[in-house]
């Protein structure tokens, strides 16, 4: 898990994905091959807007072991402004979350490998009041 996480740090710590310059489709997580243009794909890395809106969400009560302290937490599909759709956590109260809600990125901890393991940080979202 450690090298596997490290390899993607850049893409987790901020919303760095990719864009196919042939068809202008944006991808997050990044792809190095565009499924639409295939061999004509021309992939470039791109940092996406840290703002967007909630397309769908769920409040998760039955959680994996590493998330038990966060129970319940919110998972959402978020459509980034001028960007792709991303699966992420939204940090807010259960009563606050709704589809269409504006959200912005936040740097947060996802989980840790126990008390003596490494800490997995990444991008989550919080309500965007502005």
């Amino acid at each position: 898990m450690l090298p596997r996480f490290w390899r993607k740090i850049k893409y987790r710590y901020d919303i760095v994905g990719s864009v196919c310059e042939t068809c202008n489709t944006k991808y997050y997580p990044p792809r190095n091959f565009c499924p639409i243009c295939r061999r004509r794909s021309s992939i470039k890395e791109e940092m996406f807007e840290g703002k967007g809106k909630v397309l769908s969400y769920t409040v998760v009560h039955d959680t994996p072991e590493e998330y038990k302290l966060e129970k319940p937490y919110i998972i959402a599909l978020i459509e980034l402004d001028n960007g792709p759709v991303i699966t992420s956590q939204v940090v807010c109260s259960e009563n606050e979350i709704r589809t269409g809600m504006r959200v912005k990125k936040a740097f947060r901890k996802y989980f840790e490998d126990g008390e003596d393991g490494i800490i997995y940080y990444g991008t989550k979202f919080v309500p965007d009041e502005d």
Partner: peptide
């Protein structure tokens, strides 16, 4: 701090 916040996340924000 929230359960998923620490000095690193506060620093970054």
């Amino acid at each position: 701090p929230d359960i998923d916040e620490d000095t690193a996340t506060i620093s970054v924000e």
